[in-house]
Amino acid sequence: MGKSVKEILIDGNGYACIQCGRCTGSCPSGRECSLRTRKLIHMARMGMDVIKTEELWDCTTCFTCQERCPKEVKTTDMIIELRNLAVEEGYFPTMSDVPKIIIKSLYDTGAGQPLSPEVSKIRAIIGLKKEAYDVSTNAETLKKFQRLLDGLEITKKGGLR
């Protein structure tokens, strides 16, 4: 079992937040979409349904807000943990397919973002093997990994099977 919202707030120093808005003002995603980092922290503290919000999934985890927070609130860490909680509770974003695509890729290849042909080329140029060594390079390992994911019911929660 993962953490509750309250535990996430405690561990992330969320109760120290003074709602100054430096996080939202710093957020490169927020300028393009409806993500308001400060508001997420506020909602979490007020006991609102923060894990059901779509905005939770708009963060690119660039950590600028966390770097700049004057009260040492671990904003990005908290967003990541809130996402974990959201998945555990069965809340997946409906507006974006990206998380589903990532999970599918993880299930099929063992990597959330498999190597693109471009990256493979660059690897060859700098003298690395074309394929990176991960679970996908060994069919048996990949099968074990998939069993693990099944056990965690991640694909089910993500609505893939």
């Binding site: 709602q19 100054c20 808005g21 430096r22 996080c23 939202t24 003002g25 710093s26 957020c27 927020g30 300028r31 308001r36 400060r38 508001k39």
Partner: peptide
């Protein structure tokens, strides 16, 4: 200067 207007909730 970039900021959030926290009363509006808008950057």
């Amino acid at each position: 200067v970039r900021a959030e207007d926290t009363l509006l909730g808008e950057p």
